[in-house]
Design a binder for these strands. Structure first.
Lengths: 126, 126
DNA sequence: TTCCAACCTGGAGTGCGCTCCAGGTCAACC
DNA sequence: GGTTGACCTGGAGCGCACTCCAGGTTGGAA
């Protein structure tokens, strides 16, 4: 079992050191092992969790919900259904988010095209 | 020139009344006209701006940057190039955001598929 | 063994974008 | 003229997700 120093875990996960400590403090990341002197050692398993958290954060899941998910996972196998449903509901929200983003991106492109077609006078709104 | 009461402008723009007042306070929305008694009347032009702000907010532009854009627009025609470039740079960031979102969405779907294929034991990370 | 960069803790502070509040005013209708 | 609901102001407060800090400890290299 490879172990990673805090700085290395931060580098690999893309979270800052402070964020890793924060995630542990709020109970999102649990049972991070330590040296005899008290310094953290992150395992590949911890890194796996961090990759998941990165995915969920990037797709806009609130931290409270990630905590719920992590808590369920800690409770064991029998929560697998609930975890799956949690992820599926999140996926639906992400799909909506993607559609909205695409739609507003199209508006933005149209606005830009307007600027590019127009070497003369502009509209008032924008 | 049609005028809209604050509540109607809020409804049409999707921003709350407080947000409309806030946008005016920070100078994002300027020169909103008033009744003799001091109550706001939003014009179609104001609404046009609000639609643009909605687009920019939904695509993640910080308010400070929207203020910059609005300021440029107020300065007149000669800032059109700069405004266009501002929007184009933003569009690039939105494209990156869309790619990231798609990528993380794919990870999420994969995770869900994992749960669905698996009526037995699960992995540690997630 | 000494050094010093990396690490530790608890807790305060930050930035963003609103959101809420108290206390008062306006205006449309009865 | 009275009522009532929408509106006004300045300013405080909030929720989120970190981020920073002071003051102290650890541990690997020279």
């Amino acid at each position: 079992m490879t172990g990673y120093a805090p700085a290395e875990a931060a580098r690999r996960s893309g979270f800052s050191l402070d964020t890793l400590r924060y995630y542990e403090k709020i109970g999102l990341l649990a049972d991070v092992s330590r040296t005899s002197g008290g310094q953290r050692i992150f395992t590949d398993d911890d890194l796996g969790w961090l990759v998941l958290f990165r995915c969920l954060r990037d797709t806009g899941m609130p931290i409270a919900q990630m905590c719920r998910y992590a808590q369920l996972a800690r409770e064991g196998e029998h929560t697998a259904d609930e975890r799956r449903e949690l992820l599926k509901r999140h996926a639906v929200r992400v799909e909506e988010q993607m559609r909205l983003l695409q739609r507003q991106y199209d508006h933005l492109r149209e606005k830009i095209r307007f600027y590019e077609q127009l070497p003369g006078s502009g509209s008032e709104s924008g």
